[in-house]
Design a protein around this nucleic acid. Structure first.
Lengths: 346, 346
DNA sequence: CTGAAAGCGCTAACAC
DNA sequence: GTGTTAGCGCTTTCAG
């Protein structure tokens, strides 16, 4: 089923069919157009993308590289980005880096080799050097959940929630409730957003007149290898056990994200404590499960839908050349969602 | 960066480079080979996939169409399938149908138009008629989580857990504990696997000498529109409310999947009941969260990793022409995982 | 063992 | 308005 056959069927030349296919339909008689459309329908013709791409160097696929589809947060991003893309006739190629820098780079390379010119990269890495060569050759990059850094490519778009504010809100919520002994639970602070969340935590403490030095960041050990997402829950659980073993366990815990928070809750329960009573826990992300859990989880919501839509819009306008070529940062406002997992200390 | 430039650099012809690229390297002197490899490295050459595909009609991408990446169960499938594919140099293009039959068909069409010849389809639909035209043209299809049906294409591979046995195990577990008033909570029984799970439920009841007519399938209303996955939890929650309003509420509940079960637990809690004490709940899938929830969720585990690996292996061998062309069904054995959400009735 | 040549399906100048 | 033409980068006979 080629454009040639359609042309023959419609009694026109391939280029006329091509013109129609590419929206240059003012260039032909309405009746010609009709004939071509009928031929297309009759033959069930679909343009061959490989040929089209070979010719134009363009395509309508964008890449999405996420740390882990095992975490519903990233699943939600995928859904929303896909919806936005689909509505404009774009496709999304989803890649799962498992927070492995090599895999991340390999995927971006692969995407580029596949002719994908726009990628939404949810990178855990502080530096984007590993993808710079491609950016220099024209790859359009949107960094998601990672604010701009000094060494970033000039054309980079960054889309992120304000992580520092988010976890400061979380922390402040706990101090407002009267908690004084707080802990921050995370894996390695190996990514930009994690560092910022930690910064928000300490800022929140200081604001409440608590010396950050007296608070705990757990787990203290194992910072190097505990960076996963599915593992986030296991990590939270283990961290909770560690915290409970302290002389003066914290009464309030800020977790790096909801999966981790859920693990923390599990760990506290292992230790015989009741979350939302003996200990308060705050998460980050507001995944669907936060509202299902027992107790329901107080957390910091990221406006995912808006962020995903922005990511697509930015990418699209740059792929079109219709947008600015200058980089920019979009920082979204996080929102504290208070539920049952937090309460005044007993 | 074309094959021509590599050829020039290495002082050979493009076809020799192509031969090397395609594993026909016995056809050349070792030193020629060396020269070419050096040239490739030096120039950082990567074959253009579009061109290659245009020429050969083949590619190394497989499609995965899932009902919803918002459900961690499908996220887990994506991860495992991707791992298996990656190890063999294949890519996975993930598509999210949101259980919309039209979207499902459109995606399969799109994939085919993109030159994808193999698709893992997690279809909710009893009939695969909508993709038959493509199968007739050579699309290799693996149906996941959907057992073979009478009208299916002869070449179809089906990979699924034995759903009937799974939910029979779940039901039996409840009856063994002494429960006599049971309910089955699901959205519309619109898919093959859901029907089977329901069948397993009734089989389990009969085996325990309970008349299925006295048990409840909830929700009774709204069967048409409540077929989603993220919504599964909301549905479970609403269903629980309905059940509690009955004169004699069930003491044991079998849910269609874990997300739904989590919603049920939430709904029971809304009603002031304690799961694993006042009421027992069993899920299906064994998502990561089943073991995090409070109480931890008794559920039926699907051997996801093995199933995903099988899906890829089957697809691959058929794309290679190295496998059988006959269809086949692979039914995996589910496993009951007993946790805290089930206990004898009080 | 290596090279020359044809063409996959499409698009975009450029003619007419 | 519509057709002609020249490739995009690659693979694969078929010659040498």
């Amino acid at each position: 089923m080629t454009i040639q056959q359609v042309a023959t069927e419609a009694g026109v030349s391939p280029s006329t069919v091509s013109n129609l296919l590419n929206g240059r339909n003012h260039r032909m008689l309405p009746e010609t157009r009709q004939r071509i459309e009928r031929a297309i329908d009759k033959l069930g013709y679909r343009p061959n993308r490989a040929a089209r791409q070979l010719r134009t160097g363009r395509n309508t696929t964008i890449g999405l590289v996420v740390p882990s589809v095992g975490n519903p947060f990233w699943g939600a991003l995928a859904r929303h980005l896909e919806s936005a893309a689909l509505a404009e006739g774009y496709h999304v190629l989803l890649c799962n880096s498992e927070r492995d820098p090599r895999r991340e780079r390999d995927y971006v390379d692969e995407l580029w080799a596949d002719g994908v010119h726009g990628v939404v990269l949810c990178s855990s890495l502080p530096s984007l050097d590993h993808v710079m060569p491609l950016v220099e050759r024209g790859l359009q990059l949107v960094a998601f959940d990672r604010t701009s850094q000094a060494g970033d490519p000039a054309s980079l778009v960054s889309i992120s929630v304000d992580n520092a504010i988010g976890s400061q809100l979380a922390t402040q919520h706990l101090t407002d409730l009267g908690h004084r002994r707080l802990a921050f639970v995370s894996g390695a602070l190996a990514s930009v957003n994690r560092k910022e969340r930690y910064r928000g935590f300490t800022a929140g403490l200081e604001q409440a007149g608590i010396d950050p030095a007296t608070s705990v960041r757990a787990p203290v050990k194992g910072d190097a290898d505990d960076f996963g997402d599915v593992e986030a829950s296991e990590l939270g659980r283990a961290a909770a056990a560690e915290l409970l073993a302290l002389e003066e366990p914290p009464t309030g815990i800020v977790a790096i994200n909801d999966m981790c928070a859920l693990g923390v809750c599990r760990g506290l329960r292992d230790g015989g404590l009741e979350v939302g009573k003996d200990v308060s826990v705050v998460g980050f992300d507001d995944i669907v499960l936060a509202d299902l859990y027992a107790p329901t989880l107080t957390t910091v919501r990221q406006p995912m839908k808006e962020m995903a839509a922005a990511a697509f819009t930015q990418l699209r306008s740059r792929l079109d050349d219709s947008g600015p070529t200058q980089g920019q940062s979009l920082l979204f406002r996080p929102e504290l969602i208070v539920r049952e997992s937090t309460a005044p200390p007993t």
